[in-house]
Simulated scan of single mutants.
Amino acid sequence: MNRTQPIDYKSVLSLFLPAGLLDYFDITEASNMGDYFMLVLVEKDIVPENLQDLPLISNGFHKTITVADFPVRDHTMYFRIKRRR
């Protein structure tokens, strides 16, 4: 019997999302709203290499923004994005 590999959903989603998006954001919610799809993206807590020696303080998130993107199967795709301060 052939054993199949489990599906790597991150690699499948990366085919439909802008390049590199999943390197910096986690998908926390996905919804089919009928006429459109909604993905909620939260920025990962990644400190740039050139700032790792500094004592950084997390100040929460900026106001959530909504971005409309390309249609998927005749549905608009909206991204609700939360970026760190």
Results as ranks from 00 to 15, higher is better:
Gln5Leu: 10
Pro6Val: 07
Pro6Asn: 08
Ile7Ala: 04
Ile7Gly: 00
Ile7Lys: 05
Asp8Pro: 01
Tyr9Thr: 13
Tyr9Asp: 11
Tyr9Arg: 12
Tyr9Ser: 13
Lys10Phe: 03
Lys10Tyr: 06
Ser11Thr: 14
Val12Ala: 02
Leu15Ser: 08
Leu17Glu: 04
Leu17Trp: 06
Pro18Arg: 08
Pro18Asp: 10
Ala19Val: 12
Ala19Cys: 01
Gly20Glu: 02
Gly20Pro: 02
Gly20Lys: 07
Leu21Ala: 06
Leu21Val: 10
Leu22Pro: 07
Leu22Arg: 11
Asp23Met: 06
Asp23Phe: 07
Asp23Tyr: 08
Tyr24Asn: 15
Tyr24Gly: 14
Tyr24Ala: 14
Asp26Ser: 15
Ile27Asp: 02
Ile27Arg: 06
Ile27Phe: 08
Thr28Val: 15
Thr28Glu: 14
Glu29Met: 10
Ala30Leu: 03
Ser31Glu: 04
Ser31Pro: 00
Asn32Ala: 02
Asn32Tyr: 01
Asn32Asp: 15
Met33Val: 00
Gly34Tyr: 07
Asp35Cys: 02
Asp35Val: 03
Asp35Leu: 06
Tyr36Met: 04
Phe37His: 06
Phe37Tyr: 15
Met38Trp: 01
Leu39Asn: 02
Leu39Lys: 03
Leu39Pro: 02
Leu39Thr: 03
Val40Ala: 01
Leu41Thr: 04
Val42Cys: 00
Val42Trp: 00
Glu43Phe: 05
Glu43Asn: 06
Glu43Thr: 05
Lys44Ile: 11
Lys44Asp: 08
Asp45Ile: 07
Ile46Arg: 08
Ile46Gln: 09
Ile46Val: 15
Ile46Asn: 05
Pro48Val: 06
Asn50Ser: 07
Leu51Ser: 05
Gln52Phe: 00
Gln52Trp: 00
Asp53Ile: 04
Asp53Gly: 03
Asp53Gln: 13
Leu54Asp: 09
Leu54Pro: 00
Pro55Cys: 00
Pro55Tyr: 00
Ser58Glu: 15
Ser58Leu: 12
Asn59Thr: 13
Asn59Ser: 13
Asn59Val: 09
Gly60Glu: 06
Phe61Cys: 04
Phe61Val: 10
Phe61Pro: 03
Phe61Thr: 13
His62Thr: 11
His62Asn: 14
His62Tyr: 12
Lys63Gly: 01
Lys63Tyr: 02
Ile65Lys: 11
Thr66Val: 15
Thr66Gly: 03
Val67Cys: 07
Ala68Asp: 13
Asp69Leu: 10
Asp69Trp: 11
Asp69Met: 11
Phe70Met: 08
Phe70Lys: 12
Pro71Val: 04
Pro71Ser: 12
Pro71Lys: 12
Val72Lys: 01
Val72Ile: 15
Asp74Met: 06
His75Asn: 15
His75Glu: 11
Thr76Ile: 13
Tyr78Arg: 12
Phe79Asp: 09
Phe79Ile: 13
Arg80Leu: 09
Arg80Gln: 15
Ile81Leu: 11
Lys82His: 09
Arg83Val: 04
Arg83Leu: 04
Arg83Asn: 12
Arg84Trp: 03
Arg84Gly: 02
Arg84Lys: 13
Arg84Cys: 02
Arg85Ser: 09
Arg85Ile: 05
